[in-house]
Amino acid sequence: KKSYVLIKVKNPKTKETHTIVVPEENLEEVLKALASQPNVKVVDIERFP
């Protein structure tokens, strides 16, 4: 059974918020990819039960 993680990201320029759902096993690479985006800020990470 896969567990999923909900990542909320915000664009500081446009103030838009997006929610991305990723499998927990991919969380680290997704966070690394997001960290390299200049106008993306991770605001929240939630685990799915």
Results as ranks from 00 to 15, higher is better:
residue 28 E to Y: 07
residue 34 L to R: 00
residue 39 N to V: 03
residue 24 E to I: 08
residue 22 V to G: 01
residue 33 A to R: 11
residue 40 V to T: 10
residue 6 L to E: 04
residue 1 K to P: 14
residue 35 A to Y: 14
residue 15 K to W: 13
residue 16 E to P: 01
residue 2 K to V: 15
residue 9 V to C: 07
residue 9 V to G: 00
residue 41 K to I: 15
residue 16 E to V: 10
residue 17 T to D: 04
residue 15 K to V: 03
residue 24 E to G: 04
residue 5 V to D: 00
residue 28 E to G: 10
residue 27 L to R: 02
residue 35 A to K: 14
residue 12 P to K: 13
residue 46 E to V: 13
residue 47 R to V: 12
residue 25 E to I: 06
residue 43 V to T: 07
residue 19 T to D: 08
residue 6 L to W: 11
residue 49 P to T: 12
residue 27 L to K: 02
residue 9 V to K: 00
residue 32 K to E: 09
residue 15 K to H: 12
residue 12 P to F: 15
residue 24 E to V: 07
residue 29 E to D: 09
residue 40 V to Y: 09
residue 25 E to A: 08
residue 27 L to S: 02
residue 41 K to T: 13
residue 24 E to A: 08
residue 49 P to N: 06
residue 28 E to C: 10
residue 42 V to K: 01
residue 28 E to P: 07
residue 4 Y to A: 02
residue 48 F to P: 06
residue 24 E to Q: 06
residue 18 H to D: 04
residue 30 V to R: 03
residue 5 V to E: 00
residue 35 A to H: 11
residue 8 K to L: 07
residue 36 S to E: 10
residue 40 V to D: 02
residue 46 E to D: 08
residue 36 S to M: 12
residue 24 E to Y: 09
residue 38 P to S: 11
residue 41 K to M: 15
residue 13 K to V: 14
residue 15 K to P: 04
residue 7 I to K: 00
residue 10 K to M: 14
residue 12 P to I: 15
residue 17 T to S: 08
residue 39 N to A: 06
residue 26 N to P: 00
residue 45 I to L: 04
residue 7 I to T: 00
residue 16 E to R: 11
residue 1 K to C: 15
residue 41 K to D: 13
residue 11 N to S: 04
residue 7 I to E: 00
residue 12 P to V: 15
residue 2 K to F: 13
residue 48 F to N: 07
residue 11 N to E: 03
residue 20 I to Y: 12
residue 28 E to I: 08
residue 1 K to A: 11
residue 42 V to C: 04
residue 11 N to Q: 02
residue 43 V to G: 02
residue 36 S to K: 08
residue 18 H to S: 11
residue 14 T to F: 04
residue 22 V to Y: 02
residue 20 I to T: 02
residue 43 V to I: 10
residue 15 K to E: 14
residue 1 K to D: 13
residue 5 V to M: 08
residue 4 Y to E: 03
residue 23 P to C: 07
residue 32 K to T: 08
residue 40 V to Q: 07
residue 27 L to E: 02
residue 47 R to D: 06
residue 31 L to K: 02
residue 37 Q to S: 07
residue 18 H to C: 12
residue 14 T to I: 02
residue 6 L to I: 13
residue 43 V to H: 02
residue 44 D to H: 13
residue 24 E to K: 05
residue 20 I to W: 08
residue 28 E to D: 11
residue 18 H to Y: 15
residue 24 E to R: 06
residue 35 A to I: 06
